[in-house]
Design a protein around this nucleic acid. Structure first.
Length: 234
DNA sequence: GCGACAG
DNA sequence: ATCTTGTCGC
């Protein structure tokens, strides 16, 4: 199904679609050595249905920016815990299609398989585009875990009924952990290793951190343009 | 019924 | 998610 049709789905239909997609998830070792990695994020104004999506591609593991892409997209699908993908993926997909150089690996702001139906936004996007993805979330959605030690890169497994679905990672001392889980076409260990290599002094790994900065920049810039177009302050 | 709840 | 001043801790 094309993401442009997501906004017309009901929550029940979205859940049914997740149950369908679930059968195709591949959590496995990423064998092809990757030379590029990208981060994707969304930004929006609270009172608007316009979403700003952005992707930043880096050389890996040098982490030098080699490409960026942005897109603006409309959605009427509300934020519902567990159904984030249906709200954000249409915009992200546009940004993805605008990208000249596709990365070997993509990090998304949200969960991978650390989700009640194993279909966090990273897993969903990986299945859609067939690109290996990793979920890096700032807070927990699903799974039980013990607080990781306050030591750099301390890890704590996240479980659901005995199944390992993610890792709580202390990416920065004295800060809350981040929640890593494979999205699609990569395994748990590789996901955590890659994210560790992308931590550069901040709690948030560079791919997602830079994507966040980018989308906020274009959102604010676009807001200024709208102000002029609407003829305010005349 | 109560608490939890990615962005 | 976004807005937004101050404040606590390393």
């Amino acid at each position: 199904m094309d993401p442009s049709g997501y906004e017309h789905l009901s929550p029940a239909e979205a859940i049914a679609y997740q149950d369908e997609l679930r059968q195709k998830i591949q959590i496995r070792e990423l064998k092809t050595p990757f030379k590029t990695i990208a981060g994707a994020d969304i930004s929006f104004n609270l009172d608007s249905e316009l979403l700003y999506a952005g992707i930043v591609v880096f050389k890996y593991p040098d982490m030098q920016v080699i490409a960026t892409s942005t897109a603006m997209s409309h959605t009427s699908f509300p934020y519902i815990s567990g159904l984030l993908a249906f709200r954000e993926i249409p915009a992200l997909f546009n940004a993805w299609n605008n990208l000249y150089v596709k990365p070997d690996l993509l990090v998304l702001d949200g969960q991978g398989i650390a989700h009640e139906r194993r279909l966090g936004i990273a897993t969903h996007f990986g299945l859609l585009t067939n690109v290996p993805t990793i979920g890096s979330a700032k807070s927990r959605l699903y799974g039980r875990y013990e607080e990781p030690a306050d030591e750099i890169f301390a890890e704590s497994p996240m479980y659901d009924k005995g199944e390992l679905i993610g890792i709580a990672l202390r990416s920065k001392l004295h800060c809350k952990p981040i929640y890593i889980s494979p999205g699609h076409n990569i395994n748990m260990q590789q996901s955590v290793d890659v994210i560790k290599n992308c931590i550069r002094g901040y709690r948030i790994p560079e791919p997602t951190r830079q994507a966040h900065i980018l989308v906020n920049k274009i959102r604010v810039k676009n807001g200024e343009d709208n102000t002029k177009q609407l003829g305010l302050f005349d």
